[in-house]
Design a protein around this nucleic acid. Structure first.
Length: 480
RNA sequence: GGGGCUAUGGGGUAGCCUGGUAGCCUACGAGGUUUGGGACUUCGUGACCCCGGUUCAAAUCCGGGUAGCCCCA
């Protein structure tokens, strides 16, 4: 085995995507496996991506939506957890229970799989009148869902990081408006920051959040033909408020039950990001999420070394706004360094050697398409800014083309089956019946993704699976 | 949920069938020569997943556990 195969990615994305994905995650140093099954260490390079997502999203919700960040405990008493029957039923199989110590009342404690229940217990004490509403709280935290099935770095782990927003409103209208606003924000985050296009829509009765009135979702599509649910926003209606005794004295001086929503995105997005853009050389990061937008690699020869290092440092200073890396080490050859930073997904590489200095130029190389650009040093800052912008835009466009070219409108059961078999997204008429949906899953392995938000409400024709009248158009595919 | 494969220095592996000295590449440390696509060289540090069984003797055979991967649902 030669050196190339050991440090770099040894399998092709097109040949064994599962193995390829794992190698990219590990070798680009985003993450490593931890001792306990389904857990991982998110290393500084991986965590930096999460911090980008955090700061992008905080900026969108804190001032514009009036959401405050807070923190609630990890442990949830069993009685809280069971208060909302549908919710408890939906989550019970994957809750991790602590049996070490019981509460004063002899109850077990759950490690939060989501925080509706512990937060709404507080809310029931915080909310007294319409003047306390709307109440809009978000928390960034870890949660645990005890997956018994296959786990996968970022995409399906037992513990993961997320944000969960939990808001309370006087009226159904306000509540629904924000619920939709947040799912639109998620779509924007995914597309503008991560360059990862998504389908946006509404979940079926079968797939909605346990305890919710309805759930909106964004769904990305991975290159192996599986959909990835990337973010959800739930209109919880009034059922949690009723279960947790949240009520308020209205403007009419009468007692009312408020409306609630909850919404979340997680470190799963990082997995989607890796899957979507990376290639056989390693990680590819859209410039917007990259901590370091570029790396400067001087080409060093004995005679010209000092001159080149000096120039490289000047350029580093000039480009400080892009938070550049510079690799002055002399132990490794330039080729080695090229490969290394490609593996890490640094968007642009600047090569500077004696020949370039003579021409007052540097060579810029784009990570996403390998294109080399000779740039005059005086124009460098402007050109880099443009290339970063183009790269971000083109990465999204390429991913969009892939997404849309994988959607097939199917009119019959057999068309549907072959679309799923070819690992495409089938767009089909559907009756909406959970038992029909269950059968589809058993027969084809596909689950419903979502009904587009702008879908025409009046569908004519029957459900190709059960023959009953179709209610909606909907996307189906295999999924993570 | 069902089936299959794997586990050896920090990383990648050979050895396992046929039990007996753990070999190689890389990384790491020290030195010398190099540098426009993963340079060369000398010396050095460093390993058999866990529990049990068989045996004079186990990385190797047997049983159990744990973790990872793949395929199917």
């Amino acid at each position: 085995m030669n050196k190339k195969e050991e440090k770099g990615i040894t399998v092709k994305k097109s040949e064994n995507i599962s193995e390829w994905y794992e190698q990219v995650c590990l070798k680009s140093d985003l993450v490593e496996f931890a001792v306990v099954k389904g857990t991982m260490v998110i290393k500084p390079k991986g965590y930096a991506i999460w911090e980008k997502i955090q700061s992008y999203f905080n900026e969108k919700i804190n001032k514009p939506l009036g959401v405050k960040n807070a923190y609630f405990p990890l442990f949830i008493p069993e009685s809280f957890f069971k208060k909302e029957a549908e919710h408890a039923k939906g989550f019970n199989p994957e809750v991790a229970w602590i049996d070490k110590e019981l509460t004063k009342d002899g109850e077990r404690l759950a490690i939060r799989p989501t925080s509706e229940t512990i937060m709404y217990d507080s809310y029931s004490r915080w909310i007294r009148s319409y003047r306390d509403l709307p109440l809009k709280i978000n928390q960034w935290c870890n949660i645990v869902r005890w997956e018994t099935n296959t786990t996968k770095l970022f995409l399906r782990s037992r513990e993961f990081l997320w944000q969960e927003g939990h808001c309370v409103y006087e009226t159904e209208k306000e509540c629904e408006k924000d619920t939709l606003k947040v799912i639109e924000l998620y779509k924007k985050l995914s597309e503008d920051l991560l360059a990862m296009p998504v389908l946006i829509g509404k979940k079926t009765e079968k797939e909605k959040f346990a305890g919710a009135k309805h759930t909106y979702t964004i769904e990305a599509f991975m290159p192996d033909g599986k959909a990835l649910q990337c973010g959800t926003s739930h209109n919880l209606g009034q059922s949690f408020a009723k279960s947790f005794g949240i009520s308020f004295l209205g403007r009419d001086e009468k007692k009312h039950t408020p409306w609630q929503n909850s919404w979340g995105i997680s470190t799963r997005l990082i997995g989607g990001l890796v899957m979507t853009h990376s290639d056989d050389k390693g990680l590819v990061l859209p410039p917007e999420v990259a901590e370091n937008k570029l790396v400067i690699i001087p080409i060093l020869f004995d005679k010209t070394k000092e001159k080149v290092i000096k120039k490289a440092k000047e350029i580093e200073k000039m480009l400080s706004v892009f938070n550049p890396l510079i690799d002055l080490s002399e132990e490794y050859s330039p080729g080695y360094k090229f490969s290394e930073y490609e593996l890490q997904g640094i968007p642009l590489r600047i090569e500077i050697g004696p020949k370039d200095i003579e021409k007052k130029e540097v060579v810029i190389v784009r990570r996403d398409n390998g294109k080399k650009i000779a740039a005059k040093i005086k124009d460098l800052k402007r050109i880099i800014k443009e290339e970063l912008k183009n790269m971000q835009k083109e990465m999204l466009e390429r991913a969009k083309d892939k997404l849309y070219s994988n959607i097939v409108e199917t009119k019959s059961k057999s068309e549907f089956k072959s679309a799923i078999k070819e690992r495409k997204i089938a767009f089909t008429r559907f009756c909406g019946d959970p038992s029909c949906e269950k059968k589809i899953k058993e027969e084809t392995g596909a689950t419903s993704r979502c009904t587009p938000l702008n879908a025409n409400k009046k569908i004519t024709g029957d459900c190709p699976f059960c023959g009953k009248a179709a209610k909606t158009m909907i996307y189906f595919s295999k999924s993570y």
